[in-house]
Design a protein around this nucleic acid. Structure first.
Lengths: 129, 129
DNA sequence: GCTTGATCCTGTAGTGACTACAGGATTTAT
DNA sequence: ATAAATCCTGTAGTCACTACAGGATCAAGC
């Protein structure tokens, strides 16, 4: 059993974030030492590492929690996991498309910029009625 | 001079958002009718439309405010505008790259999924020590 | 035994950019 | 006269943390 600082180091999840996950019920309340300090088992650290990986993959915290629950539930519902991941992938793809739209628009707006024209072409486009 | 609802319709900025911009000092306080209701001029609506376009291009509210200030300052500093836009474009490109990384990782993780294997391959990867 | 620094605790408030009420006043249309 | 729409102020909620404040405890070195 290790202290919260060591659990943070081993899992990659920050100390304050671990306490936040506990408050939010994302992870179970850990054991406590006689001095009231939190004590984490290897399984606790495993849960935190799992959550960290989900977050790094862009899953929302509630999706990460759902995946964790699926992972700990006896039946490893691969289909459920896959569906969740597919939905997330589609949202990632939509975000990429949206950002590419932004990039194209910005690129076009700034194209005629910095040519020393009297009125900045980007600003006039943004001002258009 | 028009009421806030009409200003919202004409600018595309929501009523609550307009009041929020006013509270935050993004736009000047508008005129008021005798009954204390806000009254917007064509210039006010123009400012809101300008901000809406900046936000739709992904600029932060403070960047949008900076662009608005540049737009209203006498000297249309095209170079400043361009620099701001370039910085924003780079952040957009970084976000695209990050999301593409996510997409690739998700795609790889789900590749072997839904094959009816005993243990879901995505979950086991997320659980790895 | 004492000091110093590291670590831990609880609880609260801040972030960005809105959004959603609550509870009330006034205006417009029927 | 009444009903529906619009407006007002003020506060709280969203997401996922992050940053304190203010204190307690612990470990290491002298």
């Amino acid at each position: 059993m290790i202290a919260i600082g060591e659990a943070a180091r081993q899992s990659g999840v920050g100390i304050e974030t671990i306490r936040y996950y506990e408050r939010e019920g994302i992870v179970p309340r850990p054991a406590r030492a006689a001095n009231n300090r939190r004590l984490y088992s290897a399984q606790d650290v495993g849960r935190l590492r799992f959550l960290k990986r989900c977050r790094d993959l862009g899953f929302s915290l509630s999706d990460a929690k759902a995946l964790l629950d699926l992972s700990e539930g006896g039946a490893a519902d691969c289909a459920d996991v896959s569906a969740l991941a597919q939905r997330h992938m589609e949202s990632v793809r939509r975000k990429i498309a949206e950002l590419q739209r932004l990039e194209a628009a910005l690129s076009e707006l700034t194209a005629n910029c910095a040519e020393g024209s009297v009125d900045c072409p980007m600003l006039s486009r943004l001002r258009m009625a």
